[in-house]
Nucleic acid binder design. Structure first.
Lengths: 328, 328
DNA sequence: GGCCTTATACTCCAGATGAGTATTATCAAG
DNA sequence: CTTGATAATACTCATCTGGAGTATAAGGCC
């Protein structure tokens, strides 16, 4: 998201000897398109689920944002409910030649997901790429069994004492070791930590063939270039956003029960929320209104159906709202 | 920041007839550099205070971020404590020719401000550009006396009823009319509203010479291109950020009193905070430690001097903190 | 009817927040 | 050396908010 001193890795290095090129870089758009179906948060992927959809910026478009929108809608035939810019970075390894590539990444939310791509596009659960991020059924064993010892070892391997302590402290905070609470928003920080520790497949790509590698094949599906990092950025942004902005509704069907809404939020946040408190907050904020209908297929008592009050959007989009996901 | 449907204006339009240019755009960096001195939040400007510093992206740099950092430090000889990307947009009116320009804007915080530019750089209070954003001495008369009637008239002038209501509702929320609370974070939304209503000088630039204009010369100093909009984005981002991230300290001298810290926060937020509660929050978060010294030149009882606990930064940079500025 | 499942209505408590009051320590002016 | 002005600093208090739990209602299914 944003770096303190300069967290590195965000943007790929170019040799310091390269000359100044004032004019003439290529610009790419990269999209993190999200939908939630059957209780899973899904992201649109291409290239055998190993890449995010992307394409060159075309001047024909009014703006970057509308360019992205038009391009996605043409490719997928999905209406995009919400678009937000994520991050821009420069990457010289792309293009193949001397010309650097500037990549502008976007987060987009959509309701449906008839894939319908021109290439083999498919929607995949984002936990395929980040299995350690799903805490709905408790903390995944992967974290305590695999990450904990390896991050510990990596920390201890640091030369100077300050670095050692710094590494371990980041591990503690991001993964909630030593009884710290889990903070679902730190998706990017966790990914970066694992990357630096060499546990992520992508981190060891540039290295020699026979080199020893710490990379864990079971630490999530790898992606092309830094696409997994961009996905992490998108997930983090969305997890933060749903807490104070009514964007969840862009992912919901026209009418829904409160439990469906809750399941959607839980899928995104990767953690469960207290049902009664969730309803209290939703209702007292007047974000939804009853349709008058009820849904029978709940498995229990029929639930009232609600619809998002679009009329309140102008107000709340700017003034903010809340969702009950513990930050502590 | 981010747009709902597509708030327009964010990125300048290019004619729909323009052809696709896959390769070859120019990339510019634009910086919002902020410092706080004598109780005023200041921004570095060039070109007779009518522009933000900017320059072409040079491939010689490791990354966009380090490029920005190196370039600013060379130009101003100021160390940048904190850098954060703001927004990227495409602008075809720039470059003069067919080549579109991609502008990547950054927010940077620095401690001192010996201008020292190569061109005539100077630090200006950002309230010079946004006089309506300073509520430290109460709401500026400008808002009730000038904006209120004009925004009212602009709303009423809308053709259909929905648009009329939408305009006025945005005015109410962003400016706190009709007894709504003032929300200091809505800097960008306010600027966009004034821009759409034609009250901002920049909004009427492209128009005919003799055309009638609503633009108010007293509604803040105008800037080149969309620099004022970028500045608004930076202010909004910073105002939001100081509430949950310990970035204020990047703007403070090595040691400071709690009142100095408070004044700095107030300068940025454009509103006053409750002194006792401010201190309570700062101290219970253990963000600062006493130096043991006291400052005599307070005008009253001497105040303890504090220093920011840099050692806590690694933890808090990621875990977050709080500052007491009412959101309600 | 008994039991499972989910919806929905309330209650409780602890900590955070907003807004005071009271007291203490300096300096400067008379 | 007393009086004011200005701040620092210590407490108090009522309210809000958020997390968690209990109780009851309304369906399906056996």
């Amino acid at each position: 998201m944003n770096t303190y001193p300069d967290n590195g890795m965000a943007e790929i290095a170019a040799p310091a000897s390269a000359l100044l090129i004032g004019r003439g870089v290529a610009a790419d758009l990269i999209a993190v398109l999200v939908a939630v179906t059957s209780g899973e948060p899904r992201v649109l992927t291409i290239a055998d689920q190993r890449a995010l959809p992307s394409g060159p910026f075309q001047l024909a478009h009014r703006s970057l944002q509308s360019g992205l929108r038009a391009w996605v809608e043409r490719q997928t035939r999905l209406p995009l409910g919400y678009i937000e810019q994520l991050y821009t970075f420069a990457d010289r390894d792309r293009g193949g030649g001397e010309q650097p590539v500037i990549s502008i990444s976007y987060l987009g939310l959509t309701r449906e997901q008839r894939a319908s791509g021109e290439y083999e596009a498919s929607w995949r659960s984002w936990y395929l790429y980040f299995p350690w991020e799903d805490h709905r059924l408790g903390a995944p064993a992967l974290i305590a069994d695999e990450f904990l010892p390896r991050l510990r070892a990596w920390s201890d391997a640091a030369g100077d004492q300050f670095l050692r302590q710094n590494r371990w402290q980041r591990a503690i905070i991001t993964f909630g070791f030593e009884d710290r609470p889990w903070n679902e928003e730190l998706v990017l920080q966790r990914y970066e930590l694992l990357y630096e520790a060499g546990l992520i497949t992508e981190a060891t790509r540039g290295e020699q063939q026979g080199a020893f590698s710490n990379a864990m094949p079971n630490a999530g599906q790898a992606m092309v270039l830094d696409h997994r990092r961009i996905l992490a950025t998108g997930i983090a942004r969305l997890r933060a956003k749903i807490k104070y902005h009514p964007v969840v509704f862009e992912l919901m069907p026209e009418t829904f029960t409160l439990l469906q809404l809750q399941r959607c939020v839980e899928a995104l946040a990767g953690r469960l929320v207290h049902k009664q408190n969730f309803r209290r907050l939703i209702e007292q904020q007047e974000l939804v209104e009853e349709t008058g209908e009820t849904s029978q297929d709940t498995g229990g008592r029929p639930a009232k159906l609600f619809r998002f009050r679009r009329d309140i959007l102008a107000e709340r989009a700017v003034a903010g709202t809340k969702l009950p996901i513990s930050r502590a």
